[in-house]
Design a protein around this nucleic acid. Structure first.
Lengths: 260, 260
DNA sequence: CGAAATTTTGATCACGTTCAACTTCAGTGG
DNA sequence: CCACTGAAGTTGAACGTGATCAAAATTTCG
């Protein structure tokens, strides 16, 4: 790991996390700068490095600039559930920082570069600039909504459907931060990770994948996915990206009418 | 449904939602009052009434004073996934209000009384009093953390373990709002709901329940659960309630050091 | 280039679903 | 009060999906 202080302004405005925020909130340059000022370090993380460890205290927010990670929970019986995959623009330390001790682990599955800020510093920023508190809520709700979808997948959907939905979701998320073309993207996860994300064994995941391939819906090799029949995939998976509403602006007129 | 305006102060301070907030944030009487001022109506809802409908816009936060509901997602193939059960102190409209259109439905499973406030009004309160934005974040993170646990249950845990964990979780949540004794509580959900929550068929859920009973871990009749071997349940289920950290207070001294 | 990780394929088996019948319970009207 | 009705809970038998175990083929990486 290499630590360099802060972030340059021109770099920050194109940061995938800022790109994501732009998707649901209007931030002025000054506001973006006040967030940038919190960044304590740019960190380069090697593949397989632990970022968060289940059971330990963690009090940081890390914004992923580049690279991929996986949040997972290891069980007593040796099984593993991948809770979420973390892509550029995602935040490490959500929900870990809100708990006394992290309830899951995070590990890098590729080399990464991330920007870290102290959790307390972010909370104090929320007091000064309430908009960031709302942004945090939106982020957390987004997270919860994704989990809800995955829960439905694991509980009630067939394996082919699950896998198709998962790939479409990742594609949509990568497209949001300009890391995917119309029908193609890099998928840096092993089948073991995919299986643990979807609640399937590796052999069965492999067969499920083979089925999607044989139906001509997609190709996947060298960790590169290409959707060869987008319509067919959408039909099979019933996937539709969830539309997060934008955060309402402060209403000054309503302000005057109230004293509290 | 009967609509009466607002809430009385003495009623509000003992409202289960306020009880829950007290668990992770310090709110002054004035702050609690500013939230109370947002309540537009006290609503009495009959059993089986829809509160939120998948696909429709929903822009309210409803704080459950009494009664139980279920958030669920209905699939094309007729299957249903129960995403969460809503207890006194929980909020209806999270995450629904953050989305263009709700991505799940909510239905009352008992008669309920709830206090409704407009979502926009709450957001404006967050601008005036940033602490409420943080409270909202905490609430959302709490929700996300629960989903993460349920995802792990559905994906990787055995049925007996799932069921035991589910019951222990509900017990802990009810205890938090003073609706459960040490080892006993009301469980107003049919086995169909439990099955849909845990991703099991009704017959299998029933057999799983029978197994817990036969092992002397609990009794359940007339919708009343009694844990007869709490230690055994905890051992079997590896359950531990998740410890949400408290929301840090505003730090005035750090304030002065910064201009932004 | 060699070692390790990952992907693929096959055979067997167990768990949990499905379907069906029956029982018990709660609520309602005669 | 009891008979009736529909909902909820319980039990059984047969089936199928996906897990498990094992081994081979292939790729990645040191």
């Amino acid at each position: 790991m290499t630590n360099l202080p802060g972030v340059a302004a021109h770099e920050w405005s194109k940061h995938p996390f800022i790109l994501r925020l732009d998707g649901y909130i209007d931030l002025s340059a000054a506001e973006k700068d006040s967030l940038r000022a919190l960044i304590e370090a740019k960190i380069v993380v090697k593949r397989r490095r632990d970022l968060v460890v289940d059971g330990l205290e963690y009090r940081k927010l890390c914004f992923i600039a580049e690279g991929f990670a996986v949040r997972y929970k290891l069980l007593r019986n040796g099984k593993r559930q991948v809770l979420n995959v973390l892509l550029p623009g995602d935040v490490v330390g959500l929900p870990g920082s809100f708990l006394e001790r992290a309830a899951s682990s995070v590990i890098a599955v590729s080399d990464m570069t991330i920007h870290a800020c102290a959790f307390d510093a972010y909370v104090q920023l929320c007091y000064r600039r309430p908009k960031f508190g709302l942004a945090l809520s939106w982020l957390a709700v987004h997270e919860a909504a994704f989990y809800a979808e995955h829960l439905t997948d694991a509980g009630r959907r067939a394996p082919t459907e699950r896998l198709a939905r998962f790939l479409l979701e990742i594609h949509a998320r990568l497209a949001m931060v300009a890391r995917a073309s119309e029908v193609e993207f890099e998928l840096p996860f092993s089948q073991e990770v995919l299986g643990d994300a979807l609640g399937l064994s590796v052999p069965h995941l492999n067969r499920t994948l083979a089925q999607l391939r044989s139906e001509g819906l997609l190709t996947l090799n060298k960790r590169r996915v290409q959707f060869t029949d987008m319509k067919g995939l959408q039909l099979l998976s019933q996937f539709q990206p969830l539309a997060l509403a934008r955060i309402p602006e402060r209403d000054q007129s309503a302000e005057a009418a109230l004293s509290s």
